[in-house]
Design a protein around this nucleic acid. Sequence first.
DNA 1: TCTTGACATAGAGTTCACTCTACATTGTAT
DNA 2: ATACAATGTAGAGTGAACTCTATGTCAAGA
Lengths: 126, 126
Amino acid sequence: MEYSIGEFSKLTGLGIHTLRYYEQERLIAPERNSGNRRCYSDNDLTWIAFIKRLKDTGMPIKEIRHYAELRADGDPTLSERMEMLVQHRQALNEQITRLQEHKIKLDEKIEFYRNEIERTQNNVSS
Amino acid sequence: MEYSIGEFSKLTGLGIHTLRYYEQERLIAPERNSGNRRCYSDNDLTWIAFIKRLKDTGMPIKEIRHYAELRADGDPTLSERMEMLVQHRQALNEQITRLQEHKIKLDEKIEFYRNEIERTQNNVSS
DNA sequence: TCTTGACATAGAGTTCACTCTACATTGTAT
DNA sequence: ATACAATGTAGAGTGAACTCTATGTCAAGA
């Protein structure tokens, strides 16, 4: 299937402006039809899904662009791309660990608040 | 103990400019000494540590400011502050879950790459 | 006393990732 | 044929969170 930018925008949840911005940043390179209109494919759809994953996990546009450039060069860059993903997985693991530590501290803080609130209420009622 | 902005910057790892910016944004309100110099306390130190935690877990400055304002009002705002933290914990839990899903997908992708690389290498050597 | 370095303020500049505006062109329904 | 909605480009604007610059003050050491 092929999609106009409007259709593709709805499918991906990315605004039309954002899609054009991503193209300008060379993250994606949709075909053009006779009238110069962008023509997105199903392949573009899975690619955008992956871009969103990379973004959600904190990879900056610049780095995604680098990955996209390697991807465009095909098989010869397979191991370099894998290297990037392995690096990124490492960063992601560290991020998850950090957040889990933060969660523990936050739980403690909330527990502390619960006690404080009870204490102050006791003071008021006594 | 009390610290000059330079000392405090080293202790917290936040640049001097950032500390002044946080003050401008009303996240922190250090005392001033005779010569109008900022005078940070140990209390400020633990407060900054908590601010960093909130930031690291994705809370925007505006919201941290709101929390800081409640904090400055003392005990009467205890339950409102707890409410904020409970809300934030919810967001944090969702964030962790999302990242864990991303991690699984990334692991799969890396595995796919490993196979692809092996395949292409076999093609070359055969 | 003089100089140096840390500090002060006000405001400008930067980076990132969009997001929007202005204006021209094209595809579609009546 | 005409109107209008969707799309095109180029470039400006936005908001968040810093980060830096210019200029001035002040305390302490040589």
